[in-house]
């Protein structure tokens, strides 16, 4: 559920803010959302990265098709490069930045001390195993 919330929130917030803020608004957006949704490590960078890449790709495809896919080549002509560059460079770079931001958000949201406190005071080992998502089905040695 958190993954869907994170994906939708990132897309909506980024699309809105991108209208009047520089593209790097993605950094605070992702950090905040990952912090709040507390996605686990892989998802914390994969979700923002893929969702932003997808939304940029859709926008670019939408714009490019309006001119019969000629604009990507015209844009790439600035660099004397093939048209695919006009897709790859923005999508990969925003994906990288979103992923790193997600990882940063996860670092901020990680609070292992609290879990230890729960374990010591409120839970026995079975409770911990059953209630901690990352430990489900695993033995603690």
């Amino acid at each position: 559920m958190n993954k869907i919330v994170a994906t939708v929130s990132i897309i909506i917030l980024h699309l809105t803010l991108n209208q009047f803020l520089p593209w790097w608004n993605i950094i605070p957006v992702v950090v905040l959302i990952i912090f709040l949704t507390k996605l686990k490590s892989k998802a914390s960078w994969l979700i923002p990265s893929l969702s932003v890449m997808a939304i940029w790709l859709i926008q670019i495809l939408w714009l490019d098709q309006k001119t019969g896919f000629r604009s990507s080549q015209r844009i790439a002509d600035i660099f004397g490069a093939p048209g695919i560059i006009s897709y790859l460079v923005p999508i990969l770079s925003i994906g990288l930045i979103a992923g790193l931001s997600g990882y940063l958000g996860k670092l901020f949201s990680d609070r292992p001390q609290e879990i230890e406190l729960h374990f010591e005071e409120d839970m026995d080992i079975d409770d911990y195993k059953n209630n901690t998502p990352s430990m489900k089905g695993k033995d603690i040695v």
Partner: peptide, 21 residues
């Protein structure tokens, strides 16, 4: 700045001339 330049919302993609459509 490539990401600034190729941002589909405010970058060069927004310079595609569609006025004649």
């Amino acid at each position: 700045g490539l990401t600034r330049l190729l941002n589909p919302t405010t970058g060069l993609w927004k310079n595609i001339d569609l006025s004649y459509q």
